[in-house]
Design a protein around this nucleic acid. Sequence first.
DNA 1: CATTATTTAGGAATCATTATTATGGGAGAA
DNA 2: TTCTCCCATAATAATGATTCCTAAATAATG
Lengths: 135, 135
Amino acid sequence: MDPTPKLRMTTQRQVIMEELRKVKSHPTAGELCQMVRRRLPRISLGTVYRNLDILSRSGMIQKLDVAGQEMRFDGDIRDHYHLRCLECGGVSDVDLALLTDIDQQVEEASGFEVLGHRLEFVGRCQACRRDKKVN
Amino acid sequence: MDPTPKLRMTTQRQVIMEELRKVKSHPTAGELCQMVRRRLPRISLGTVYRNLDILSRSGMIQKLDVAGQEMRFDGDIRDHYHLRCLECGGVSDVDLALLTDIDQQVEEASGFEVLGHRLEFVGRCQACRRDKKVN
DNA sequence: CATTATTTAGGAATCATTATTATGGGAGAA
DNA sequence: TTCTCCCATAATAATGATTCCTAAATAATG
């Protein structure tokens, strides 16, 4: 019932959130752990995982279940789409208006109760296009 | 260069493809292994994984990198979208026309070279809606 | 058939993630 | 302040999906 029952703001939790919000990349738990360790050298990877989970559950950050094998995290909680570069593996934001009517459309066509959708693009980022080799 | 350089068709490979094409579900490697074992009881899970990879690379089946922790496979190689039921975890096909212009749209807006997109819906399937409890 | 390269079964290894457990620190009561 | 109590942490073990490894089996080819 209580939206934020007991969210003790520990140093670790604070720093994790700060570091995540600093960057526009969408780091994995491991990457973020490295970033946080510059300020808290003794932090455990398990602590990072647990706090990322808590923070995303409470709506303060976003957990991105993008394609690939590793979960990624986003300090920007606004709903938006992403683009993955196949070459460098990076994940960037896409400035595209949200598709608002397809959920309704699919719901009517399929008989499913559609709660949302996930759209992501794959391609090559500008940096990787620049140093294009013959491959 | 050669589109199908040397694709030896072994019994295992044949059966894996047949069993996958039989079903409309989108089984995981483990599930498919169980199915295949009804005909080839001694098949190894590693063999299933390797052949699913080979078959998808050669374009004979589709590897679905849908959200969640397990890879899923589709015998239908036509490009189409999917819907995941949050309750039972099943993955179904969605009968929705492909979004053809957004790739171009995103490419122009972002400067990325957009090669494609992945769209999937989340919701509750008809079966799970039927036995709706108060939860 | 005999040769040769590929494939298989089985198990070990890997990688991301989650669970476990003993320890430590903070908030509130006495 | 000092004592509890509870939650958080660090470190590590455990899990689960996937990949890798190796000797033995098997398909293609002549």
